[in-house]
Design a binder for these strands. Structure first.
Lengths: 228, 228
DNA sequence: TCCCCGTGTAACAATTCCGTCATGTGGGTG
DNA sequence: CACCCACATGACGGAATTGTTACACGGGGA
């Protein structure tokens, strides 16, 4: 679970405090002091989570959160808002801005990390390195192993990532575009049909243990992994 | 198990006491009387463990521990805090600062050594001198010997350290960068591909007893040692 | 000083993987 | 029942990654 966290906070002391704690926990931190600065970074590449201060010079955190949620490319990045105590009660509408969670200052490092983990697990569970198991098929990111009914299954890098994504988001149809986004990553230029080929390769690898039946085709929509 | 221990303690009598005991046990000791002094040493080279007094003139031990944990380079050094009183509140806060363990003064030499050993075993098992054995392959740090199915295997220094690291962290994928960090050590400027070459040399040495198959390549990720 | 060992790097070889296309297949629909 | 569209499948060339070897360099030790 070492993710890229974008910290948007104008007060240097708090930014530093937060960044240090995140780095300590193994995350990679990008720092920005304003929404504009943050946006420039996001244009290059997508972080896994965004910590966003409520009050910012220029575009407010609230406004920026809305913008992020209104943009296709950034829509699904988890956002955690940082608010001062004064703003607390009434401003729970921060959640309505699209934030996944919010933290009121001051907060403990422990709480910060716990929220990030919770938010990631909810919105992007494939970024944690917890092992996943479905119907006798087990995938462990730490050891990079896939085991089907006792026997080890060899997968190429892309098939591994794809299976990981499927297993952390089961019972849900993913379009080819979504798969390209989340398995191949941001900013890739690949034919959608290529997904089919990798699905084929994944199924082929899973055939040995019969788990290939877990990967289902949803005609004209995409693919889905059964939970059982 | 002769490790480098950095002792940060402002009271000369206690510093001396601790240092003497550690040296007697075969450790190499670096002494510092303040966080600033300690930091100057750490900039040069990394110790294996840090004994950190809670109360220090200037930067407190707690603050320094946080700083160490917030810095990539020093993040994984085990820290043991020395506290004057067994105050529960302090203990908890000390642990949240990122310390691995704490000792309340006065403590016995025996306890001191035991804690160091325990902390190393948990965070950096490759620094202890416990013998490791996997699938008939045995490595003994104390005698600096590797034995595969009865016959002794000759390894170069780097290969030895690498095998030791692998055996103390089996079944986990290690990237080339991680291996450089933990096997070559701090402050190295070496090409990542150099790891490949040493993997090759290690495998070559292990071929004699057939243990070379334990070192697996995980394409696009790094290398891994099988537990069996 | 010379030699030897260990090391890091570069160059080349060998794999493996990837993306694309051509073609086959099957289901839904009019 | 035929047609069309979406998906499946297999093959292939090229890219990316890893394996292997050779070599130069530097630091002890004889």
């Amino acid at each position: 679970m070492n993710s890229i966290v974008l910290v948007v906070e104008d007060e240097p002391a708090i930014q530093e405090l937060v960044a240090v704690n995140l780095e300590h926990a193994g995350h990679q931190v990008w720092r920005a002091s304003s929404a504009e600065e943050a946006d420039a970074m996001v244009r290059d590449a997508l972080p896994d989570v965004i910590l966003l201060d409520w009050m910012l010079p220029g575009t407010s955190g609230l406004a920026y959160a809305r913008r992020l949620r209104g943009t296709e490319r950034t829509r699904r990045i988890p956002i955690i808002m940082l608010t001062a105590r004064a703003e607390e009660r009434d401003k729970i509408e921060g959640l309505e801005s699209g934030a996944d969670d919010y933290l009121t200052k001051p907060f403990s490092p422990k709480e910060l990390l716990a929220r990030i983990k919770a938010v990631l697990r909810r919105r992007a569970p494939e970024l944690t390195d917890d092992a996943v198991e479905i119907a006798g098929l087990r995938l462990d990111p730490a050891t990079h192993r896939v085991i089907g009914d006792g026997r080890e299954i060899a997968l190429g890098p892309t098939e591994f990532r794809m299976l990981h994504f499927f297993m952390t988001h089961p019972e849900r149809v993913h379009s080819r575009a979504q798969l390209l986004d989340r398995v191949w990553g941001d900013h890739v230029f690949v034919e959608e049909r290529t997904v089919d080929v990798h699905i084929r390769r994944l199924r082929q690898a899973l055939e040995a243990s019969g788990h290939d039946r877990l990967i289902e085709t949803v005609r004209s929509s995409g693919y889905r992994m059964r939970a059982a």
